[in-house]
Amino acid sequence: KEYCRTLFAYEGTNEDELTFKEGEIIHLISKETGEAGWWRGELNGKEGVFPDNFAVQINEL
């Protein structure tokens, strides 16, 4: 499994977007979303897309 840590808080504006606080760990599902600048991940049981410049991939939890 791949993970990323959020660098900033983000408020999702669409139903398919994740909302998160700074410093949260998102399970990274895919970097290929069909839309440049967006990754797909899962946080707190919800799957959605989020801007990749708001997070950095990490090697271990």
Rank of each mutant, 00 (worst) to 15 (best):
N14G: 12
T33E: 06
S30R: 06
F54K: 15
L28C: 03
I29D: 03
E2R: 09
G37W: 00
I58V: 14
D16W: 10
K21M: 10
V56Q: 09
F20Y: 02
L7R: 08
E32Y: 10
T19S: 15
N14A: 13
E32C: 10
E11I: 10
L28E: 02
H27W: 08
A36F: 10
W38M: 10
I58A: 11
E24L: 04
H27A: 14
R40H: 08
D52V: 10
F50M: 01
L7N: 09
R40T: 04
E15T: 08
E42Y: 04
E42I: 13
G12D: 01
K21Q: 11
T6R: 03
S30V: 02
Q57C: 11
E47P: 02
S30L: 01
I26H: 05
F54Y: 15
L61K: 15
Y3F: 14
A36Y: 07
L28R: 02
G41I: 00
K1H: 05
A9P: 12
E24F: 00
I29P: 05
E22D: 04
K31T: 13
R40E: 04
E35T: 15
A55G: 08
L61R: 13
Y3I: 03
H27F: 09
E42D: 08
G48P: 00
K1L: 08
W38Q: 08
F8R: 15
K31F: 01
I25F: 08
K21A: 13
L43N: 06
H27P: 06
I25V: 12
E11S: 09
K31N: 04
G45S: 07
E32I: 10
F8H: 11
L18E: 04
E11M: 09
E2V: 09
T19H: 09
T33I: 12
E22H: 02
T13N: 12
L43K: 10
T13C: 15
E47D: 07
E22S: 11
W38K: 13
D16P: 02
E15S: 11
G12T: 06
A36V: 13
E11R: 09
D16Q: 12
E24C: 06
H27K: 15
G41P: 04
D52A: 15
F54S: 15
T6M: 06
K31Q: 05
A36N: 10
K21T: 12
W38G: 04
E42K: 14
L7C: 07
P51D: 05
L18N: 02
N44H: 13
V56T: 15
C4I: 11
T19E: 03
F8K: 15
L61W: 11
F54W: 08
T13H: 10
L28G: 01
K21H: 11
P51F: 03
P51K: 15
R40M: 10
G41M: 00
F20R: 03
K21S: 13
F50N: 01
R5L: 07
A9F: 06
E60N: 09
T19N: 11
N53I: 10
I25G: 04
F50S: 01
L18M: 07
N53K: 15
G12V: 00
G48M: 00
F20M: 02
G45V: 01
W39D: 00
V56Y: 07
N53L: 11
Q57R: 10
F50Q: 02
L43M: 09
D52R: 13
I26M: 04
E60A: 13
E32K: 13
G12K: 09
T19K: 06
A36G: 09
E47V: 13
N14C: 15
F20V: 04
H27R: 14
Q57A: 13
N59S: 14
K31M: 14
E17L: 02
W39T: 03
W38A: 05
N14M: 10
I25P: 01
N59K: 08
G12Q: 05
N44G: 13
G23T: 06
L61P: 15
K1Q: 07
N44L: 08
A55V: 15
W38C: 07
G34E: 10
N53E: 13
I29Q: 05
F50I: 01
R40Y: 10
L43D: 06
F50C: 05
C4S: 01
W39Q: 03
E24H: 00
R5N: 04
H27Q: 13
G48S: 01
S30T: 14
G34D: 13
S30Q: 07
F50H: 02
I25Q: 09
E2S: 11
F50A: 05
